[in-house]
Design a protein around this nucleic acid. Structure first.
Length: 325
DNA sequence: AAGAATCCCAACCGCAAGTTG
DNA sequence: GCAACTTGCGGTTGGGATTCT
């Protein structure tokens, strides 16, 4: 399987295409079809390799290419197919008329992937993130919150919110632990799609904290479709959490959420600002002001420099654990 | 206003499957 | 069956555009 030597040839132009080159390529293909891409450049009078011409044609010049922003429907289609097909961009592109694999790939890498990460979902599995380090922002915020609580007198309302916040954060952490354990316990041959126990069913978690999870495809469903050919129009309806399409940007979502102990938590008149954390607004795993930390800190790359981690006993005291066992 | 940082996407690279002689 | 060649694909990058400080 030798590699094509065409791109190694010297003297062939690289880089952005000029309008003149585009014109030559378009005219030639419209007249003769592309035929052999290797032979095309010479025949069309272009100082490019065939590969470059093919790419330019398929990704940009083809007349049926749809340009402009992706619609919400297209976005949802990409998410659905990606959850099943993974990074098979050309396969996904077949279900989006007028969109190229390159365009979809770019859109995924620049928008959708980030969006999923910000919401606390693993972009590859489309499941809530299970790695410990993805929960670090929450752990750190939790520790900070606790520190803050212990240092400062609170009124009743704030104290109640504190308890809620701590419980919610603990729930998230516990959930991650359970999921990790479950993933390990389940089949070693599992595909990229993880299986997790239905936490609601086993009574560990209850809505609304788990509302985003409950709309995800069930493990049995995912198992049932894995290995099957996906036929256009027959893809089962994988539910992306409805909040995905309503979710404001990370920064927007965080406008009212700041758990870091800093002077700005105190209002102008010296009274503490209200921490807006309701039962229904538990932030996604990575939706904290220190966002990106979860993403940047993979288990292999995070050295934790400059960050003081709370110890586990601090996070999960006996009383808390006994509540859920 | 200007420099820095970040975003975005067209295009490139290299691998592997498919085709041909 | 084998080697040479072609095509398609997915990952990555360079640099212009945009936003932030």
């Amino acid at each position: 399987m030798g590699r094509s030597p065409c791109c190694d040839e010297n003297g062939l132009k690289k880089g952005p295409w000029t309008p003149e080159e585009d014109q030559k390529l378009m005219e030639y293909i419209q007249k003769h079809g592309h035929g052999s891409w290797r032979a095309l450049p010479k025949l069309a009078g272009l100082n490019r390799c065939g590969k470059s011409c093919r790419l330019r044609w398929t990704n940009y010049l083809r007349p049926d290419i749809k340009r402009g922003k992706f619609t919400q429907e297209e976005e949802q289609t990409i998410l659905r197919f990606h959850s099943v097909l993974g990074n098979k961009w050309s396969a996904i592109a077949k279900h989006l008329p007028g969109r190229t694999d390159n365009e979809i790939k770019n859109f995924w890498n620049t928008h959708l992937k980030k969006k999923l990460i910000q919401m606390g979902f693993d972009p590859m599995t489309h499941r809530p993130r299970t790695d410990f380090f993805s929960a670090l922002p929450q752990l750190i915020a939790l520790a900070n919150l606790r520190q803050l609580v212990e240092q400062r007198p609170w009124d009743d309302h704030a104290a109640r919110l504190k308890v809620e916040a701590v419980q919610a954060a603990k729930l998230q952490c516990l959930q991650n632990l359970i999921q990790s354990a479950a993933s390990i316990a389940t089949s070693p041959s599992s595909s990229s799609i993880n299986t997790i126990p239905d936490l609601e069913q086993i009574g560990l978690l209850s809505p609304p904290q788990m509302s985003s999870l409950s709309s995800l495809p069930s493990p049995s469903f995912l198992e049932s479709i894995s290995g099957q050919d996906i036929v256009a129009g027959q893809l089962p309806d994988i539910q992306i959490p409805s909040s995905f399409f309503e979710q404001p940007t990370c920064n927007d979502a965080n406008q009212n959420l700041d758990f870091t102990p800093k002077s700005s938590v105190e209002g102008e008149n010296g009274t503490p600002k209200t921490l807006l954390l309701s039962e229904n607004s538990l932030p996604p795993l990575t939706d904290f002001p220190i966002s990106n930390l979860g993403d940047a800190c993979s288990a292999s790359s995070c050295d934790g420099s400059g960050i003081q981690f709370p110890s586990w006993p601090e996070l999960f005291d006996e009383q808390f654990l006994s509540e859920f066992v």
